[in-house]
Nucleic acid binder design. Sequence first.
DNA 1: CTGAAAGCGCTAACAC
DNA 2: GTGTTAGCGCTTTCAG
Lengths: 327, 327
Amino acid sequence: MADIARMAGVSLSTVSRSLSGSSLIPETTRQRITELARSLNYQVNIGAANLRKRDIQTVGVVILGDSMQTISDPFILNILGAVADALDERGMSLLLTRLNPQRQEQMAAMFDSGQVAGLIVIGQLTWHDYLNELARRGVPMAVWGACLSDAYYPVVGGDNATGGYLATRHLLQQGARRIAFFGDISHPEAALRHQGYARALAEAGLTPDPRLHQSFLFGDRRIRQVIDMWLDQGLDFDAIFASADIAAISLIGALNERGLEVPHRVRVVGYDDIALSAYLHPSLTSIRQPTAVAGRALVELLFEAIAGLPRRSVMLPAELVVRDSSA
Amino acid sequence: MADIARMAGVSLSTVSRSLSGSSLIPETTRQRITELARSLNYQVNIGAANLRKRDIQTVGVVILGDSMQTISDPFILNILGAVADALDERGMSLLLTRLNPQRQEQMAAMFDSGQVAGLIVIGQLTWHDYLNELARRGVPMAVWGACLSDAYYPVVGGDNATGGYLATRHLLQQGARRIAFFGDISHPEAALRHQGYARALAEAGLTPDPRLHQSFLFGDRRIRQVIDMWLDQGLDFDAIFASADIAAISLIGALNERGLEVPHRVRVVGYDDIALSAYLHPSLTSIRQPTAVAGRALVELLFEAIAGLPRRSVMLPAELVVRDSSA
DNA sequence: CTGAAAGCGCTAACAC
DNA sequence: GTGTTAGCGCTTTCAG
């Protein structure tokens, strides 16, 4: 910037003002400086500017992980994409971090070290208490997850109870009676989906069979093992509601392998409606969650938190998308 | 930091030195300061430190997009994950940006504005010339893509020619004779895969039929239209080699819809070996690319570029993974 | 309208 | 070992 000032024959202040679009600077000077900057590939040093302005143009996005493995749920990554777009629209940068439970503290560090103005957390999992703690400490954030009543942080999430209800009622309407549930109910989102599942069953005069409830959601190998186990035990089931499409996909693979045709022998409904679901064979019935809206809402809520506005949460509708796997 | 200095009864320098682990500071003082920092949730302001140290702890990761749509190829996101891990190991932060061709300049801006020490670009597509231009300008970077001979930037990529060859030879060995190719050969990666495809055909005494070459890779709707078109024209084909698993998956869906069973009527091989491919029905034969190694290599090459070391490129092996779709 | 000067939070000479 | 000081690149009063 000093170079430009010298070359343009003006002071630092003038260049600074000019480049930041101050209306005090006459068009001609402004043009000259802009031109000079372009030809030098000069861009204002954002870090230094922020230091002086005491504001940060970056938001931390944290993807929470369950296992040590790379997260690859397309749904999560869809939300990430939506958040990236929404942040982009506001001219904010996105600092990405993936965290597993062993490194909780790193989450706060991003904020405490002045790297980011706030945090968007994707995947609430079992971090509820820690997130509450951070929020109490005044770390601005917005979380994708279940809208827990005792959450001290703003949440954007789907209507998981309704989603679970819709999925299960649909299966019942298709004639299913012995519906298994796949999902880790230690995660609030899955727990709510399970509530909806139970409610739909109750309405049909049925009660959930605990033997048909499986907590292992991630890890396709384990999903296959469960199917094997059920079949070997002669357990009776004619439908499965899986709390994530990626689990449903593994399930369908395992069922096919054991000769149980989907949907004729076993109907399957997933959750999230990831892009691939429509192109599977059979295509997968699922509960759609509006990820684009979610991304926008997360960013909006985070900005409200940063601005010190009262915390609020957003619950997005869940929509049943019927395809072949439940026909 | 000033607070801590005052509370600890020492000078700013002592706190700074202590927190950055200088061996000059005695254990006892160091302990006291560390303790104080922890209790105040204090973390050194990275931006200010970097400004002073004139070094940046952040790397920009750019995901290049073809269309205006959110990118959601799991393979790309796998590499992103691997890069994130590798960066993490080195204590670097990851600034994520998604760019489409309309906003090329933003890529340089990340570096010029001092936000990042260098760029990792995922998805070379048709950006080759622009990437070369940046590299010439001295922007440190590393690119996932095809190892082009006239690339002025370091590249990490799979052995696309061999991958294409392996896929096609495998199909030929399975008895296929009329093998279609799906992939946009304006992208260097796909072009190399097509070369391998042509070579395998040549070895079998066959020549590629241009009518069986389809450039549309993204957009499942278009893929279906192509299948419809081929069938309506009575075009003869008994196998398809698709330059991406996500395309192969759409293809299989479209084929099934038209009653062409995979693999009995049409064999299919994809590329990338995304996680889902193993769990499809039929499971998808594909060419595996080692994403974890790729992530590590990209980071390594970027650091070499930043350090001013001579540019080099890394070509990773392509491995055929045989599954049901080509049986 | 424009320039001089102070200072954002931190580190690194350079003294003591 | 420790403190003092200058200054990283920028913005913003405050004078002119």
